[in-house]
Design a protein around this nucleic acid. Structure first.
Lengths: 333, 333
DNA sequence: GTGAAAGCGCTAACAA
DNA sequence: TTGTTAGCGCTTTCAC
């Protein structure tokens, strides 16, 4: 960190006090237009840059926000990050990015790192959230949770309506004439997976289709699982498969292709997430778009509102995902 | 930014001076084990956190690095970011992420934002780099460029060997028996695209295959371009297509699928980038892996070395991409 | 409209 | 091993 010229150098150069320079830089109206212009010009000439540390030491503001996220290389999370980043940038804030790598201990480590006054507030997309991990820190620094909620915490939250998204796509499958819908879920401890499964059960019931647990499978939500479990489901006579995400759906698609099972004529396939490549498949995937970008924006907005008025009460914002109809569940809608 | 307790509160609580507390916190050896332990315990009890701004104001260190990147939602760049982030985290540094959105003006804006002493050094993956944009800032703050180089700048650089990567895959295509290799390039101003095209020409020459400019097409490197230009190339009788990236290759694959052209029996397809989904296609794509994660790590390492010893001379590190052989160019290797 | 004094929380340098 | 003093670069407060 090299500081070439400070506020006093500028003051001396202009024949004014440091205070006057400060006023010029901070757009105060307690200063005449003439001196302001003179000072700003001098700053240019001298290559002066205000010192961030000194400024934030006295103002107790950093104009920075911390974002703790499970995996920046995941398409969904990278879109969330971009949503956060774009909104912050617009409001003159910077972004301190912390990739927790889905590890609880790194998450906690980053939380403490940020709490040293490096940022004005934190947005966290927690991994396996437990109330105890956040209630302490939330008292020290404004915090917004997103994506994944810790029950019982008095903290603002922005999330996606998994129940709604799954209901939409399952209803659509039934409307398209599918009756025996196999499901490849994620891990049994994943709340997103569980909420979507609940929607599946409710929609089936509403349509008088009996639930068959034989065609509901748990998995690690990988491409390979999608591929392997498709064999199992097809042997059990499903006419369609709802995959917990598009990556799993890609596994389903590959199995079908290699076994000459046509999509959607022989079997319907539904995904979730709307990753970029799902529209690029030979038979593009019908899926659910969670709009991570929007979630990031809303989370950032919520946090900045909280910073502007810390007395704001915590609120829960649940975003509605959107059904994206393409061709993997037949065309005629 | 809420500061509950400062170093003097801890000092008072322990009956020592602030300086002693500072020593305990900074692992100085100028302090007895007993007092150190007592102080550390007191810090815990009082919930004391060192103040980042105050500390960096006096030490002139932030333990932060800025990363300016064109688009965090792009798979390649997100892997670069993760490489940077992981390495920094290991070394006790934080990451200030700036998404330039491929806009030159935002890039410059971020550069100035960071130069206010927010970070100790900067890694930038520039968009259309021009020497003039960086030579000023590089004198003020340690800078490492990556991915894309500004000619004539005396700054460290970490990049990928596009010529090598393309040579490898074109050579492989010829070895697999393809003779009339169509090419879908990117924009004519893209240096990566031009370097790969040069490799294409050289490898053809070395194998005594005459260059036919009719089957070399420029594009915007999109999925749609891949789809549309495949028609053109097939009409010109190519036996294979080298796409400038995997997204374009996905367009090629889709066109072939919809027109009952078999891969690799009827036509060979080669991509570049090794995006996650290229291995998930029914016929997985042979492509070139640039290993963005590695590039990020090396860039971060280079910068941290520079911070440790600013007299280090600028160096250029060119990483070798790796050919990834899958099935889209026939199996028998 | 401008300036002087004080201090944000911390550590470097020196003193004891 | 511990403490004192000074000051990092800036803004707040109050005086003029």
């Amino acid at each position: 960190m090299i500081i070439l010229v400070n506020i006093r150098d500028v003051a001396r150069y202009c024949g004014v006090s440091a205070m006057t320079v400060s006023r010029a830089l901070n757009n105060s109206n307690q200063i005449s237009q003439a001196t302001k212009e003179k000072i700003l010009k001098a700053c240019e000439e001298l290559g002066y840059r205000p010192n961030f540390a000194a400024r934030s030491l006295v103002t107790k503001k950093t104009n920075m926000v911390g974002l703790i996220i499970p995996d920046i290389t995941n398409q969904y999370y990278s879109h969330v990050s971009k949503g956060v980043s774009s909104y912050l940038s617009l409001q003159g804030y910077g972004l301190l990015l912390c990739n927790s790598d889905r590890r609880k201990d790194d998450e906690i480590r980053y939380l403490n790192f940020l709490a040293e006054g490096r940022v004005d507030g934190i947005i966290i997309l927690p991994v396996q959230p437990r109330k105890e991990d956040y209630e302490g820190i939330a008292k020290e620094i404004p915090l917004v949770m997103a994506d994944n909620y810790a029950e019982g915490l008095d903290v603002s939250f922005v999330g996606n309506d998994n129940y709604h998204g799954a209901s939409e796509i399952i209803s659509h499958m039934i409307k398209q004439g599918f009756k025996r819908i196999g499901v490849i879920l994620g891990h049994s401890s994943s709340s997103a997976s569980n909420e979507r499964f609940k929607a599946y059960k409710d929609v089936l019931k509403k349509n008088n289709i009996e639930l068959d647990n034989e065609i509901v499978l748990n998995s690690n939500a990988t491409f390979e699982d999608g591929f392997n479990l498709t064999k199992v489901l097809i042997e059990k006579g499903v006419d369609s498969i709802f995959a917990i995400n598009d990556t799993v759906a890609l596994g389903v698609v590959k199995y079908c292709y290699l076994n000459n099972i046509r999509i959607p004529e022989d079997i319907g396939v539904a995904g979730y997430d709307n990753i970029e490549q799902s529209s690029m498949l030979p038979v593009p995937l019908t899926t659910v778009d969670q709009n991570g970008n929007q979630m990031g924006k809303v989370a950032a907005e919520t946090l900045l509102n909280l910073l502007a008025d810390e007395s704001t009460v915590a609120k829960k914002i649940i975003l509605k995902p959107k059904l994206v109809i393409r061709k993997s569940l037949r065309e005629n809608i």
